[in-house]
């Protein structure tokens, strides 16, 4: 049932939204389509989390991971550019599964924007961080066993996050894919992209082992 529902959303709603955008919004149809796809693709993940087997303890621990990655922005206020959000999302995904990873990514974006300001970037951030978490959850076994793979994943996801958000920015401003603006945006944000990638790697290296230990300990102690 849950699978059928999420497929239905993909199969019906997305083309429907794009068709509606073409009919009504004319010139800005691509911007509308991009926003509609971002919002609608989050829905099946939320539904499958709703239907999935999650007891109270798991729910609260995921909530704590969301709170920790949101608060990470505040604790690391003293060191600009270094933010543990992606690392926390990846670690949650590794230990609690792909769906929990998506929830942590998407909800961290949503919640931290209640403090830093909501905007048209919110659905895109939710989708980008959510997908980073989801993919990490699918690759969980390989990521736990190999440090090199984990670091590569952190670096790639930092770069991908930046590239994806720039892509949406261009479509939003220009109504089509304007290559010269995209290149300008990518180049001007390159220092931040590199800093994201490097800080993801450092945070994953530093946090994965102690945090993994703590999670395993709590799992053992309380039998989750």
């Amino acid at each position: 049932m849950k699978k059928i529902l999420s497929y239905l959303i993909f199969l019906v709603c997305i083309p429907l939204a794009i068709a509606l955008g073409m009919a009504v919004f004319g010139d800005r149809q691509y911007a509308f389509a991009a926003a509609a796809v971002a919002v609608l693709s989050c829905i099946p993940f939320f539904i499958s989390f709703e239907k999935g087997e999650n007891n109270t303890t798991r729910l609260v621990i995921i909530a704590v991971m969301v709170a920790l990655s949101a608060i990470g922005r505040l604790v690391f206020y003293y060191v600009p550019g270094f933010k543990p959000v992606t690392a926390m999302v990846v670690i949650t995904a590794i230990y609690f599964g792909a769906e929990a990873g998506f929830m942590t990514g998407a909800l961290t974006a949503l919640i931290s924007n209640f403090f830093f300001g909501q905007g048209m970037w919110t659905p895109f951030q939710m989708l980008a961080w959510g997908l980073i978490g989801f993919a990490a959850g699918l690759l969980a076994k390989k990521l736990i066993s190999s440090k090199v793979l984990l670091c590569t994943y952190g670096a790639v996801s930092g770069i991908a996050y930046s590239l994806i958000l720039d892509l949406f920015g261009v479509i939003w401003a220009d109504t089509y894919f304007n290559l010269s603006r995209y290149i300008a945006m990518v180049v001007s944000s390159a220092p931040f992209t590199i800093l994201y990638a490097v800080s993801n790697v450092i945070f994953l290296l530093v946090l994965q082992k102690p945090l993994g230990k703590k999670i395993e300990r709590v799992k053992d102690k309380y039998g989750i």
């Binding site: 939320f46 539904i47 989390f49 709703e50 999650n54 729910l59 609260v60 995921i62 909530a63 704590v64 969301v66 709170a67 949101a70 929830m103 909800l107 949503l110 919640i111």
Partner: peptide, 11 residues
Amino acid sequence: LPKPAIVMSTA
């Protein structure tokens, strides 16, 4: 969506 909502409000 009660479960995502409880995660969000707890966070």
